[in-house]
């Protein structure tokens, strides 16, 4: 199994996709941070000032928005094998297909962790000088920074494997990516934005990821979320259930 995980990591490192996705992730987070910096202390924007612990919380949690990209990365890790038919060689080498999917999930977890570390490093490089410039105090142990960092790591890692499981289920690259983006930005946004629907929405992957971060910038609205460990369990649950369904259905199909 270790060999298979290594092979999966090699598949990623020998093509250009991973750094395109990493750049996209950092770009998105950079835009978010620029917005947080630009509108800090702005009364109309409702954002706290740069030297407050509230702003630090907000800024540190920007990294979690990268989860859509790691999810796409996860989807592509499996659907590109069908797109370029490298799945044939993969299954010829490892005819027990369930092992391939398991190896991909483990590799995805590792990649998600590495992405999260890169994201946190990038955030630190932006946030720490900014706060110091604004005359605030930098503390990596207060303002819930450790919890937020842990939440970022967990949500990026789990979203990568969620992407893999979704990819295994749909096999088609375009359908997988469009489905993931539409789900995250349309359906979940609706369920998480409308209070009456939050009862359902908190059980969605997006709701679970939010509970991992559990930022209390706007208190009242967050009380409906699951506890952080519950959010993690829900995300793992989605990935495992999708992977099991995929394993019993689409992964078994004939490769023609």
């Amino acid at each position: 199994m270790i060999a298979l995980v290594r092979a999966e990591l090699l598949k990623l490192s020998t093509t250009r996709l991973w750094w395109v996705m990493l750049l996209s992730t950092l770009l998105l987070i950079g835009v978010n941070l620029a917005f947080f910096i630009g509108f800090a202390g702005n009364a109309q924007g409702g954002l706290p000032a740069l030297d407050t612990p509230e702003w630090a919380q907000l800024a540190w949690s920007a990294g979690a928005s990268g989860r859509i990209f790691v999810m796409i990365l996860g989807v592509v890790m499996i659907t590109s094998e069908y797109r370029y038919q490298t799945i044939t060689g993969t299954f010829l080498t490892t005819p027990r297909r369930g092992r391939v999917i398991t190896a991909k999930l483990v590799a995805g977890l590792i990649v998600g962790l590495l992405f999260a570390l890169a994201v946190l490093l990038f955030t630190a490089l932006v946030v720490i000088p900014t706060v110091l410039f604004a005359g605030g105090e930098v503390s990596l142990t207060e303002a819930r920074v450790p919890a937020i960092a842990l939440g970022t790591v967990a949500s990026l890692a789990l979203y990568t494997i969620l992407g893999i499981a979704v990819g295994a289920l749909v096999r088609n690259q375009i359908a997988g990516i469009v489905g993931a983006v539409a789900w995250a930005y349309v359906i979940e946004s609706i369920f998480l934005a409308i209070p009456a629907l939050q009862v359902v929405g908190k059980w969605f992957p997006g709701g679970a990821a939010q509970s991992l971060m559990s930022i209390d910038v706007t208190p009242g609205a967050r009380s409906d979320l699951l506890p952080a460990w519950g959010g993690a369990a829900v995300l793992v649950g989605y990935a495992v259930v999708f992977a099991i369904i995929a394993n019993a259905t689409t992964v078994r199909r004939d490769i023609t």
Binding site: A7, L10, T14, T15, L17, S80, Y84, Q85, T86
Partner: peptide, 14 residues
């Protein structure tokens, strides 16, 4: 059955 962005050697290596 190849990823167009991968080199021949890497294809065999993995």
């Amino acid at each position: 059955n190849f990823h167009p962005g991968r080199t021949a050697h890497n294809h065999l290596r993995l």
